[in-house]
Amino acid sequence: MMMRRMGAVVLAGGLSVLLGTVVLAASSSAPLPPPDPTAKNLTPYMIQLRAFDACLHTQSQLLQTTREAVHTPCSCYAKGTVNAMSKDEIQAFRDTGYFNDTAREKGLEFLDKCKLKRPL
């Protein structure tokens, strides 16, 4: 039981770090990390969950607040961005694990609409 709990904690921590790159990749023109093989079979809803978790992590750090404080705006961001993505943009995310240029623009628009801070 303790090993299972520790494994879940390690997995959750690793996932948070990985998801942080989604939001950062959505706002940066810096070289992107290598493709994420775990994104290959994600549904749009699962992509939305990744974007939401990455937003919680990144925005709580940028705004120096709790994840709870950015829950609603991050939900707005994740839902809006993924719902606005085309089939090609969804497939590009599956291929790489991060937003392509056109999806990144949509993500930035939703950061603004949802009153979140743009990462540098």
Rank of each mutant, 00 (worst) to 15 (best):
D88Y: 01
C114S: 10
M46L: 04
T96C: 03
P119L: 02
K113V: 07
Y98P: 10
E109A: 15
G13E: 02
L116G: 07
C114M: 05
L18E: 05
K40F: 04
T72H: 05
Q59N: 06
T21L: 03
N100L: 11
S86A: 00
F99P: 08
A54W: 01
R5K: 14
F93L: 06
T66F: 14
T38R: 11
T66N: 15
L32G: 01
M1A: 12
P31V: 00
S29P: 00
G80A: 09
F99N: 02
L49W: 01
T58R: 14
A39E: 13
S16L: 14
T43G: 03
C74W: 11
A92D: 08
A84W: 01
C74G: 08
F99Y: 06
A39K: 12
L49N: 06
P31K: 14
P37E: 10
M3P: 04
R104K: 11
D101A: 10
P37G: 06
A26F: 11
R4F: 00
A103M: 07
A69M: 02
G13C: 03
T72A: 08
S60T: 05
D112L: 10
L111D: 08
E89R: 02
T21Q: 03
Q61P: 05
P73Y: 08
G7P: 01
A39W: 10
Q59E: 04
L11V: 12
M46F: 11
N100H: 11
M46V: 05
Y77A: 10
T102P: 01
Q61Y: 04
T72R: 06
L108Y: 09
M46S: 06
G14T: 01
A25Q: 00
L42F: 10
N100P: 05
K87T: 10
L19Q: 07
G20P: 09
P44Q: 04
C74T: 04
L11P: 00
T102D: 14
C76L: 07
T58L: 14
Q64I: 06
T72V: 11
